[in-house]
């Protein structure tokens, strides 16, 4: 177990280092940040001075050395735009993104598990075919289009929920969250729904495919021979055996939603990290982009780690090593 954690820790360091190289290379060859920093009417001399101060006259290797050493020291740089530490900007906006993503994943699970299990257990029924057709539609719908349709129907026409923005927030363990008040929660609904549809559609297909495989197994027939009811057979004996691939995909999709909820956040003017990324790209706010990418890499490593642990929890034959 201890060895496992050490190995994981080394893995995290290696991944982050690799990402730092990629990010640095990308940043170094996509334009000169000097012009972002200096006033429009800066003189040649001022520009040259700025380049010197930013260390842009050094070789790439030396520049990378500076970049890496500040990363190691926990100095991720300051946003050119906000004049704040870039990491702080991301952490401030992270709860907003986590809120809609967690709600979206919860919706996806609650809908996809019963539908997927049912469609996998009785694949020949017309209703199962309908579920599969529906999931195909769900996968094909572009999120931005769906978001706009939802806004038009539920916010503009029916006026059930607000069309955009984040509602009032409360403090919870030092994080600003909005799901605690009804008004805040109302703001969450549409963005979370928009995010959930694609995920939910894919989860249905995965659960169905796995269940179809599992239902052929002897232990399912044996469970039926024991006199277990349909629910016991499907959920106790069936679903648990179908969970491993589900957990894998679920983890990756959750990471994906957190990192790249960009479109949905933009449509709903949701102040999360996805919107921060887009804004930072428009403004050429290089430090924020760098930290963002590092953060996403770190998050995926953590997600994989959690998935690995879950494997061992689900299946006693799998040992964490």
């Amino acid at each position: 177990m201890f060895g496992y954690f050490t190995k994981r820790l080394i893995q995290i360091v290696v991944v982050l280092w690799a990402v730092s190289v990629l990010v640095f290379v990308m940043m170094s060859f996509t334009g000169d940040p000097t012009y972002m920093m200096v006033p429009l009417d800066a003189t040649e001399e001022q520009i040259a001075q700025a380049r010197r101060l930013l260390g842009l006259n050094d070789s790439h290797l030396v520049q990378y050395g500076h970049f890496l050493s500040s990363l190691v020291r926990g100095d991720f740089g300051r946003s050119f735009v906000f004049r704040q530490p870039a990491m702080q900007l991301i952490l401030e906006r992270l709860p907003a993104t986590l809120e809609i993503v967690i709600l979206a994943m919860a919706i996806a699970l609650v809908v996809a598990i019963p539908l997927g299990v049912y469609a996998g257990a009785s694949p020949e029924r017309a209703s199962s075919h309908a579920v599969m057709a529906g999931s195909l539609v769900g996968i094909s719908l572009p999120g931005f289009w769906l978001g706009m349709v939802l806004i038009y129907v539920f916010a503009v026409k029916l006026q059930l929920v607000p069309s955009s923005g984040r509602g009032p927030t409360q403090e919870l363990f030092g994080l600003r969250v909005s799901f605690l008040s009804w008004e805040g929660f109302r703001h969450l609904i549409l963005p979370a729904l928009t995010l959930s549809v694609g995920t939910l559609a894919i989860l249905i297909r995965i659960i169905r495919a796995e269940m179809m495989e599992v239902m052929k197994q002897d232990y399912i027939k044996f469970a039926r021979a024991k006199g277990a009811d349909r629910r016991g057979v499907l959920f106790k004996h069936g679903l648990k055996n179908a969970l491993i691939p589900l957990v894998t995909v679920f983890g990756l999709m959750m990471g994906d939603l957190i990192a790249f909820a960009t479109l949905t956040e933009t449509i709903f003017a949701w102040p999360g990290i996805g919107k921060l990324l887009v804004d930072s790209i428009y403004r050429g706010d290089r430090p924020v982009i760098v930290v963002y990418l590092m953060f996403v890499a770190f998050m995926f490593v953590v997600v994989n780690f959690v998935v690995d642990i879950l494997y061992a929890v689900i299946d006693p034959r799998i040992k964490v090593k």
């Binding site: 002897d218 232990y219 027939k221 044996f222 648990k240 055996n241 299946d315």
Partner: peptide
């Protein structure tokens, strides 16, 4: 059942 290796639920 015939095959005790597969009749029991592994989980």
């Amino acid at each position: 059942f015939q095959d005790p290796m597969t009749a029991l639920n592994p989980l």
